[in-house]
C-alpha cells in the first residue's frame, strides 16, 4: 500500500469507527463525543496553522467566537434558519481571520503570538462593550425550537451526533486532503525553513495568509457548530483560556498529525472528567499528567505513534 492509500484508509477508518461508537457507547459518552468532535474541529483548524505552517497563534478564540456569534446573532436578530446562519458564521470568521491575518502576518514568531493575543483580547472586550446586543459574559440561549435543520431537530441525541460527525468528517477529510496537496506540502516547507521556501520561489506571505484564513474559518465552523448544537453563545468562549485550549489539545495529541487534534481533545476531556470523579483536586491530577506527558511523550500522543510505529502518518 502506498502512503496515500494508507492515509485514505486511516481517515475513512477513523470516521467509520466514530460511526460505530455511536451504536456501542452509552448515552453519556455519545453526548461527550458529540462535544469532542465539534471541539476537535476547532483543534484541527488550529493544527493546520500551528502544526503544519509553524505559526503559533494565541488568538484563535477570536475566530471561534466569530463563528459562534456570526451564527448566534443572526439567528437571534434576523431569525435566519440554521443553515444560513451557519453560513454567516463562516463568513464572519472569514472576514475576521482575513483582517487579523493580513495585519498579524507582518510579524513572526513571538510577536505573532502577542499580536494575535491582543486582537483576540480586543475582540473579547468588544463583545462585552456591545453587551446590549450580545448580553456580554452572560451570553444568550438559542432556543430549542429554532435549532431545527431540514426537518431534523438538532437537539435530539442522534441528530446532534450525526451533525457533529458530519461537521467533523468534512473538516477531517479536508485537512487530510490539504496536507497531502502541493499547497499543504509548501506549508510544511515554510515551517521547516522559511528562507529556503522563499528562495525556491514560494509566495510565503500569501501561503501563510491562506493558511490563517482556512484555519480561522474552520475554527469559526466549530464555534458556529457549538452554538447550534449546544444552544448557547457567550463571551467566555472568546477569552484567552479558549485560545490556549486548542494549542494544548494539539500539543497533547500531536502537532502536525491529522488525527492528533481528535486524540488530544478527547484525551483532555476525559482527563478532566475522570479525574474530577476521583478527586476534587482534579486540576492537580491534570497538571501532573501534562508534566509527565511532556517528559515522556514529547511529540504528543499521535506524534509518538508516528515516531515509534507508523512513520507514514500524515
Amino acid at each position: 500500500m502506498t502512503d496515500t492509500r494508507r492515509s485514505q484508509a486511516l481517515h475513512a477508518g477513523v470516521i467509520l469507527l466514530l460511526i460505530a461508537l455511536f451504536f456501542v457507547l452509552p448515552a453519556y459518552h455519545v453526548g461527550n463525543l458529540a462535544r469532542i468532535l465539534v471541539l476537535a474541529v476547532y483543534a484541527m483548524g488550529y493544527n493546520l496553522l500551528f502544526g503544519y505552517t509553524g505559526l503559533l497563534s494565541l488568538g484563535h478564540a477570536l475566530f471561534f467566537a466569530a463563528g459562534m456569534y456570526g451564527l448566534g446573532m443572526t439567528m437571534q436578530f434576523f431569525d435566519l434558519d440554521p443553515a444560513t446562519a451557519f453560513g454567516s458564521g463562516l463568513i464572519a470568521a472569514l472576514v475576521v481571520s482575513a483582517v487579523v491575518g493580513f495585519l498579524a502576518l507582518r510579524t513572526s514568531g513571538v510577536a505573532f503570538m502577542i499580536v494575535t493575543l491582543m486582537f483576540a483580547q480586543a475582540g473579547y472586550l468588544t463583545i462585552l462593550y456591545f453587551g446590549e446586543y450580545t448580553r456580554g459574559d452572560e451570553g444568550f440561549v438559542i432556543q430549542q425550537a429554532e435549532r431545527v435543520f431540514a426537518g431534523f431537530d438538532l437537539t435530539g441525541p442522534t441528530e446532534r451526533y450525526v451533525a457533529a460527525l458530519l461537521l467533523f468528517s468534512v473538516c477531517f477529510s479536508l485537512i487530510a486532503y490539504i496536507v497531502q496537496s502541493p499547497f499543504g506540502r509548501s506549508l510544511v516547507a515554510i515551517r521547516e525553513n522559511e528562507e529556503r521556501a522563499k528562495m525556491l520561489g514560494y509566495d510565503v506571505v500569501r501561503h501563510k495568509l491562506k493558511a490563517v484564513i482556512i484555519s480561522g474559518v474552520m475554527s469559526g465552523a466549530a464555534g458556529a457548530g457549538y452554538a447550534l448544537l449546544f444552544g448557547y453563545a457567550g463571551a467566555t468562549f472568546a477569552t484567552v483560556q479558549y485560545s490556549i485550549l486548542p494549542l494544548l489539545w494539539v500539543l497533547l495529541g500531536g502537532a502536525g498529525v491529522t488525527i492528533g487534534p481528535l486524540i488530544g481533545t478527547a484525551f483532555m476531556f476525559y482527563l478532566i472528567d475522570y479525574s474530577s470523579s476521583i478527586t476534587t483536586a482534579y486540576m492537580l491530577v491534570a497538571g501532573v499528567v501534562l508534566v509527565l506527558l511532556t517528559l515522556f511523550a514529547p511529540q504528543g500522543l499521535a506524534g509518538e505513534i508516528r515516531k515509534r510505529a507508523l512513520p507514514w502518518l500524515p
Binding site: 497538571g287 501534562l290 506527558l293
Partner: peptide
C-alpha cells in the same frame, strides 16, 4: 505544555 501543567498544579 509543561508549564501549563505547572500552572494547574500551583493553582490547585
Amino acid at each position: 505544555v509543561g508549564t501549563i501543567g505547572l500552572l494547574y498544579i500551583i493553582q490547585q
